[in-house]
Amino acid sequence: MKRSGPLYTLLGGLLLALFMLSLNATTGEGNSSYGQDAPGAASPAPTSAKPTASKPPKDSPSPTPTKSPSKRPPGKSEYAGRTADDAAAVSLSIRDDKAIAYYCNGRDAESWLKGKVEDDGSMRLTGKHGAKLEGTLAGNAVRGKVEIDEQPRDFTAARAKKPSGLYRATTEVRGAEIDGGWIVLPDGRQVGILKEDGTPKKAPRLDPKSLTAPFDGGELTAAPVVP
């Protein structure tokens, strides 16, 4: 019976060894909870990297629309000419975007008109009794149509240099209201009407240097018309 002790001890050791071998075969070293950190662990299959979407370039700022250059000259400019039928004269005084025009036949018909000049050089001026002028400033001339007393007439007024241009005198003489208008054309001719208490007649000649005109034993003093 004393010899059976070592035998049992050897048998128990064998059984323990078999148990441990069986346990290792069941769990496997590759199932370590540390994954690739465990010695001999299989490297994980490489995952295909997702292509990084390239960041779209920032929209370039939209170009600021360039404004068309104005066709009207800056500052003050004068224009003078005649209607196509040579029945009357037309003169315009323009300062920036404002305009005054004068239509005159030199006898008994006249009209003062005013309005705005657009950037493209177009204008629509109006006056009393339905008078109107539609024109376009292009280059060194204003061309268009003027309608006075329901009679439309085409006209061309060229750029004027002093003393050519538009002049006016308003005053009171011996209790009478005096209103005179003169158009001095580029060739030196003058067309004008002088009204005395509203009654029109041909205006006396205006001295281009002194801007005076004789009237009733004295003289009238005119001035350039400014819008």
Rank of each mutant, 00 (worst) to 15 (best):
G139H: 06
Y102V: 04
T136H: 10
K58L: 12
P227D: 04
P46Q: 10
W112V: 01
D187W: 02
P56K: 13
I183K: 00
N31F: 12
G165T: 03
S91G: 15
A84K: 14
N24W: 15
A109C: 05
P204N: 03
W182M: 02
L14F: 15
A169T: 06
P163L: 00
S4G: 14
P69K: 08
D85G: 04
G28H: 09
K162W: 08
L220M: 09
R205M: 14
D86M: 09
D119R: 11
G75A: 07
S48G: 08
E134G: 11
K50S: 11
G40W: 04
A101I: 00
D149A: 12
K116A: 12
K128G: 09
A17E: 09
S210N: 09
P56T: 09
A45R: 10
W112Y: 09
L133C: 04
L10Y: 12
G188C: 09
V225E: 06
R95P: 01
N140A: 10
L185Q: 11
A157E: 02
T64L: 11
P39V: 05
R168W: 05
T9M: 15
E219L: 04
K2C: 13
A84L: 07
L14Q: 07
D216G: 07
Y103A: 05
G218D: 14
P39L: 07
N140F: 03
G81W: 00
K98C: 01
G81L: 02
S54Y: 13
G121Y: 02
L11Q: 08
L133A: 04
S77F: 04
